[in-house]
Nucleic acid binder design. Structure first.
Lengths: 242, 242
DNA sequence: CAATGTGAACAGTTTCACAGCT
DNA sequence: AGCTGTGAAACTGTTCACATTG
């Protein structure tokens, strides 16, 4: 029945990082009553080219209809499926400072499939505190409170504590780590790690501010900046590898 | 005198995103008394290949010495220079929730060159609050408090407020935006935008957890995982484009 | 006939291998 | 002898152009 899903090969990482963006747009359009989306429209709203959208979506199998476009609702489901948002991913957050709290509270961050199962910190001032239905504990108290393996560990500690956090998370079964601390982690080879280093983001911006030096729009790389619009979507990619 | 700096062409974005990592490592080594670093050592600590390190650093001009390696202190300075960390970048943060506060407090985030000049929010509960020597104000009060153009605007608001924040920041002269809200921003073509979407990071991890499915270390892409170590650095890239 | 899906050309990065300094 | 700097090859991802299909 289902119109041929889950195409064969692996999906390239840049594509994987763009799929959630298409999904968000498709969901919003579906919500406002639009049943179908063209690659052109999706491209305009996502800040990429239409060809890229089609290549990206082709990885999901054929869920478009020629002459018509993609079914918005079907797109949302199809992308959920490949992203694994359907499954259940027990998440532990280490480091309950401002960043940790921001992650806990951010709407849409721990939604759909990503289930918070533990909060870890060492600061005695917040140990024992209850946040979002979870008590903040030290690492050695965590196993007693877990009834399952951790799938994803989020490291929101200072750099000095990050490696230890990674070790402990791996010991609890985490196969994936999301590291916000500015350090390169040493991990066994089968562990997937993604880095989000906020200070690097700033530095990359200032570097290009320097080299673009007022030569408006010269930003060689992408930047589709579609046809006739006073303002065009600013295209962006989300990187990192394991 | 200075040994030929600032090579001609543009530096590829993936390289730009790695330079701060090398810098951090070089700084740490210099601090512990090591005067010179080889590409091999830098590679092992950064989780990349030695060839990549050499190609990357070659963009800075020739600051290595054959047979010896790179001078650690010189590396730190050279990278500061190309990243623009020497210059002065007035930064405004919009959205003083947990994330905004995390950015303000994170050691190393607003250091060296990135100078906080304004905090904006609309929540009456925190308006007027003083944080890090800056009073949180509404956007319309900000111009009166600024004595210069904004260089970089950081958007740490909910998605619903992000586009407005972007518009206002651009009006204040910001040429670069760092957007943490899960939305594609519409901006004039000469504005550089980088996206950090936390929920996408989680989804990318779960996608690959799905497809790698226990086939340990098969992660095709990079993953140098050097020679003989029980644990190898987990390589990572930091992406996004304007 | 509009809009997808895709082979082929193109572009950007990474890896390799080694020539060239120190 | 050791280690950088760099062309050339390999690879990965993007853009183009169009045949194909509903």
């Amino acid at each position: 029945m289902a119109p041929e899903r889950q195409r064969s090969g692996v999906i390239p990482e840049p594509t994987v990082a763009r799929l959630p963006i298409y999904q968000r747009i498709a969901a919003e359009l579906a919500r406002t009553g639009q049943a179908t989306v063209s690659s052109e429209q999706l491209a305009a709203l996502a800040g990429v080219t239409a060809a890229k959208v089609r290549k990206d979506l082709a990885h999901l199998g054929k869920l478009g209809t020629r002459g018509t476009g993609y079914d918005a609702a079907q797109l949302v489901r199809g992308i959920s499926e490949v992203m694994g948002a359907d499954q259940d991913w027990p998440v532990v957050i280490v480091g309950i400072g401002n960043l940790g709290r921001a992650l806990i509270n951010a709407r849409g961050f721990l939604a759909r499939g990503y289930r918070l199962v533990g909060l870890v910190d060492t600061d005695t001032r917040i140990l024992g505190t209850e946040i979002s239905g979870h008590t903040v504990v030290r690492f050695d108290e965590l196993p007693a409170r877990l009834s399952e393996k951790v799938a994803i560990g989020i490291i929101a500690t200072p750099a000095s504590a990050a490696q230890d956090a990674a070790d402990q998370l791996v010991a609890l079964g985490a196969g994936s780590l999301l590291n916000f601390a500015p350090t390169v982690l040493m991990t066994p080879p089968h562990i997937r790690v993604r880095y989000v280093d906020l200070s690097i983001e700033l530095q990359v911006l200032s570097h290009f501010a320097l080299t673009d030096h007022s030569d408006a729009g010269a930003m060689s790389s992408v930047g589709i900046q579609p046809i006739a619009a006073p303002w065009a979507p600013a295209a962006g990619e989300h990187g990192a590898r394991s």
